[in-house]
Design a protein around this nucleic acid. Structure first.
Length: 418
DNA sequence: TCTGGGGTCCTGTGCCGC
DNA sequence: TCTGGCGGCACAGGACCC
């Protein structure tokens, strides 16, 4: 039996933990740059604010209904997530942290357990210890556990946010109840195609022939079909090191000049290097991209990405920055207003693996240098930067509604008035 | 003025060498 | 020397997830 545990409206709930007066009030959390809504409380959903709603388009509605607006505070959410996950770990040794707000748990030998009662116990503990409300769905496969979770969430009164799909009847009922587009793994494209064929529900989907599914939805679709039929083919996945690391941002304004883009790209590359060092990897491939604003049909559009194979694997911020600027030269074109850029590093080798190749000319002094940089940045906050980085004059992310980092920064710790 | 960021996996295509 | 078939690889693009 699998369980999918999902935190309700996670980012909004995190904000609420530290502002309990907001219970029952509409909350939205905005993306970086305060661009669009990435999380909404139930009250905000009820007002008709969709996922991804551009903030500037919904400004009036926010004001009219006194919606509490927050800039995304990822350090806070990451820390809260960690707390929730450590509690979940105590309920099953077999756990896959699937995303910041979701985890799959596997329960073997629980066939005669009262799953509902167990789920309620988990809910109670997580809420008591973190203030985060969760929903639990039990089912024989991961895809069905997702579905069970949806049911629990859809009928909170009836299910008290815990649902167990523990019989064939319930599985069939759930398949017939779930619209095809709401099935885990069926996105917009597949939904449209299936819809046109008259496939409206998950139940319709599992009636399709294997060959057709494989041909049009690839092996991934076929696995999904099996899962929905009740055969577990997706296992719990253990955390592995990332295969790619990206740092990308939209800008608060457009950049037509090369200079500010250089600064951004250099900073992104440095941030990639920090993430690389954290997982003890070195990268052998670096991609830089820059795009104009696709929403601005009135401006000339252009975008390009350029990939460089590095002459040697490295995680030095200075070296990656240098290569990134080289790649940027291939990407940049005069006469365009760039709105977004990023750096992606791929093809990793572990730190421990000695470098091979007689032409590798990595400067070995970089290694202790970067270790020192990481140590200083850890001790004193992110202070050590490359000279090419912006000291804070040009670049500023819009974050007008940022909440304090209550749980990760001592300066932001909450004050309790007695 | 103002529309996120960070990932994964799979497939098709073109090229290379055998 | 030319040709066809095939595997491996790199790469781009497309689909998906939260």
């Amino acid at each position: 039996m699998y369980a999918l545990v999902d935190c309700n409206n996670f980012y909004a709930s995190c904000e609420r933990v530290f502002r309990p007066e907001l219970n029952g009030k509409p909350i939205v959390v905005l993306s970086n740059n305060d661009g669009c809504a990435i999380a909404r409380s139930n009250e905000a959903k009820a007002l008709g604010i969709p996922m991804g709603a551009p903030a500037f388009q919904f400004k009036e509605l926010f004001e009219k209904h006194k919606v509490e607006v927050f800039s995304a505070n990822f350090p806070l959410y990451g820390d809260m997530s960690h707390r929730v996950m450590s509690i979940l770990e105590t309920y099953s040794p077999e756990i896959e942290v699937y995303s910041i707000d979701e985890a799959f748990l596997r329960f073997s030998g629980f066939d005669h357990y009262d799953l509902i009662a167990y789920g309620q116990e988990i809910r109670k503990k997580v809420f008591q210890w973190t203030g985060i409300p969760i929903t639990v769905g039990f089912a024989p496969t991961k895809a069905l556990a997702k579905m069970a979770n949806r049911i629990a969430k859809k009928y909170p009164e009836r299910t008290q946010n815990v649902y167990a799909m523990d019989s064939e009847e319930k599985r069939i009922k759930a398949l017939k109840w779930t619209a095809i587009g709401d099935v885990w793994g069926i996105g917009r494209q597949h939904q449209q195609r299936l819809d046109k064929m008259g496939i409206k529900t998950a139940f319709d989907f599992v009636q399709l022939g294997d060959d057709w599914v494989k041909k049009h939805l690839s092996i991934v679709g076929l696995r999904l079909k099996r899962e929905l039929q009740g055969t577990a083919v997706l296992q719990l996945e253990s955390p592995e090191d990332r295969k790619a690391i990206a740092v990308t941002r939209s800008f608060d304004t457009n950049y037509s000049e090369l200079a500010p883009l250089k600064e951004r790209v250099s900073t992104f590359a440095f941030a990639c290097s920090e993430k690389l060092r954290k997982q003890h990897s070195n990268s052998s491939s670096l991609t830089v991209f820059a795009y104009t604003n696709g929403h601005r049909r009135d401006l000339p559009q252009y975008g390009k990405k350029f990939r460089i194979r590095l002459p040697f694997p490295t995680n030095s911020g200075m070296e990656l920055s240098k290569f990134a600027l080289k790649a940027l030269e291939q990407v940049y074109r005069e006469g365009y207003a760039f709105k977004k850029a990023g750096v992606i590093v791929e093809d990793f080798t572990p730190d421990s693996q000695p470098q091979l190749g007689c032409f590798s000319n990595r400067d070995q002094r970089q290694i202790p240098l970067m270790q020192a940089v990481d140590k200083l940045n850890f001790l004193y906050g992110k202070k050590v930067r490359l000279a090419s980085h912006d000291p804070g004059k040009v670049w500023k992310m819009r974050q007008e509604k940022l909440s304090p980092s209550y749980s990760t920064d001592l300066r932001d710790i909450i004050t309790i008035h007695l």
